[in-house]
Design a binder for these strands. Structure first.
Lengths: 239, 239
DNA sequence: GCCGATTTGTCCGTATGTATC
DNA sequence: CGATACATACGGACAAATCGG
């Protein structure tokens, strides 16, 4: 990311998180930022748009751009953004390991196609992984990858990080993801592979990801033990 | 919303949902859209950005803009967007009623302030509501509003729709919302007011909303019975 | 492998509108 | 009313990626 607007976004974000622009105060006006960063109006606006989308600021016509990010809120055990399990675990300060439970090629029948969003007949790689951290098996991932997109993938790689392999070795870029979050009863299988204590339900995140060419190449269900699940989101009404 | 880019966004969205531009196909290039809509490059790009943010399309440099929205996916029992409970219920085709359980003015002590994000000493209106639809009490809302933002609000209005009142009568506009989703054990109170069957956990959405001036004016915890909870989201990696 | 046409991505400079104070 | 600040749009320029010949 070598774009100017993105550098400005990161700089402003840092200042907000560092308290240079505190909660509920106004950041400098667009024209001041234009002078400060030596770019144009439009480029500043681009950066401000990203700040808004990420829930850091809110702009008010005729008044200014107000900081709405609060320190302390939204921190621990967050598994929301598109990021690898390793990234999320590291950000939460946890040692994490992954055990691969299944790794097999299948052809999508109607049942799989309906569930995953792939087409009947698509060749898929079915992977099941168990995520261990903080002393317990806490997440059970069931994934279907489009086989043609994961050439050369092995169980050993899957136990490390599939996404780092895809992005590094295959040069694939993960960009957009459609997610749904639901709660489901734990199955016998869940109880077998996870350390569920006395929990009888799970938080299930269905994730359909698209690569940089807009091709749907993965559907994953992540089944989380409830006490380790937090999902974050910021929404903007209207336009 | 009188902006040109927004009209173009809505038009393209309609065409995608109507199947004019089917799943996985490319929509016309920017230059073709410029001619079709009689505006500039930048205005088209603005519309495309909104389409991307809402998970309808994905753009690939040098190739085009591909449709990634699938008909049928993401439909029923969705309570994700910033919208009133009535809007959501109506979209899901359900008759809905609301019972107001508490309605009282309080001053934020440290406990309330920490939980809600308001400051100690802020005057707040505490409201508890029970949402009934599909034949059962399914959602339990506990809200704190900034008192100065909800002048004239009555329990009767709260049983209808607080947001319609705020937007209509008070001219307030709800714009940004920070949400966290977690799972929690049902309390004795939950069991008292909701028809929980044998569920012992709830999906809890904490919602901090800001008005059009960027002022935090509401924190609500919506406690959903698990079988009626689905949350949707689309995420974009990188910038 | 190279070149040129196409397409998206970024940025500039300017102009006008609208809301706030 | 004027100054300030954000919102939208125009038109032009160049960079970067893709694709076909």
């Amino acid at each position: 990311m070598k774009a100017i607007y993105y550098d400005i976004y990161k700089d402003l974000r840092e200042k907000i998180m560092a308290g240079v622009y505190p909660y509920q105060t106004f950041i400098p006006s667009e024209s001041k930022l234009v002078m400060e960063y030596g770019c144009t109006h439009n480029t500043i606006r681009r950066a401000l748009q990203v700040l808004m989308l990420h829930g850091f600021v809110h702009s008010v016509r005729g008044k200014g751009v107000r900081v709405i990010w609060q320190a302390g809120h939204r921190t621990r055990f967050v598994f929301g953004d598109i990021e690898t399990f390793r990234e999320a675990a590291a950000r939460n300060g946890l040692e994490a390991t992954t055990q691969v439970r299944a790794f097999e090629y299948v052809v999508a029948d109607k049942r799989i196609a309906d569930a995953t969003g792939f087409a009947v007949g698509d060749e898929l790689l079915h992977v099941e992984r168990i995520r261990h951290f903080d002393g317990a098996n806490l997440i059970f991932d069931k994934s279907y990858f489009r086989a043609s997109c994961v050439e050369g993938l092995t169980p050993e790689i899957a136990s490390d990080s599939i996404f780092i392999y895809l992005e590094g070795e295959l040069g694939m870029e993960v960009t957009i993801s459609n997610r749904t979050i639901t709660m489901e009863y734990a199955t016998a299988e869940d109880r077998e592979v996870l350390d569920l204590l006395d929990f009888d339900m799970l938080a299930v995140v269905e994730n359909r990801t698209f690569n940089s060419e807009g091709v749907h190449f993965e559907t994953t269900w992540s089944r989380h033990r409830p006490d380790y699940f937090t999902f974050l989101d910021t929404a903007v009404r209207g336009c």
